[in-house]
């Protein structure tokens, strides 16, 4: 497990909290780790909290999009939550609208949506 992100398993959902100082290596490690955990924990939902991130570049943006695609292949639905306005504007500017991922205002919003779709 890296220091830059923590994964918690709650009910059928994996909660991922990404810290502000995450590096490119860290996030690749996270992608590995998360893929394994989805299968080993039998998770049906993944919630990635990025509220700590003040800057998101194309690399991190692409990995976030990839995480959602990977999770979908492993039968889990991904929610990206807590994006800051400045980050949202940057991503749109970069043309990355993460159209493959679901988004929610906060962790509880995401959990509510997951419960509504009976995944949690």
């Amino acid at each position: 497990m890296t220091d830059a992100a923590s994964i918690y398993h709650v009910e059928n959902v994996l909660l991922v909290a990404i810290r502000d100082n995450i590096t490119d290596t860290d996030i690749i490690t996270l992608q590995e780790e998360l893929s394994h955990r989805i299968v080993s924990d039998g998770a049906r939902g993944v919630v990635i909290d990025i509220s700590a991130l003040e800057i998101v570049d194309t690399f991190v943006g692409r990995i976030l999009a990839q995480l959602s695609s990977i999770a979908r292949l492993l039968a889990a639905e991904t929610y990206i939550v807590g994006m800051r306005p400045a980050v949202a504007m940057t991503l749109v500017e970069l043309g990355m609208d993460l159209s493959g991922s679901r988004t929610a205002l906060s962790l509880s919003h995401a959990l509510r949506s997951l419960r509504a779709s009976r995944l949690a």
Binding site: Y79, I80, V81, G82, M83, P85, V87, A88, M89, L91, V92, D97, L98, T103, A104, L105, S106, H109, A110
Partner: peptide, 12 residues
């Protein structure tokens, strides 16, 4: 459209 995309990214 860009505004709508950013709003969606925020989760709204």
């Amino acid at each position: 459209l860009r505004t709508a995309a950013a709003v969606r990214l925020m989760g709204a």
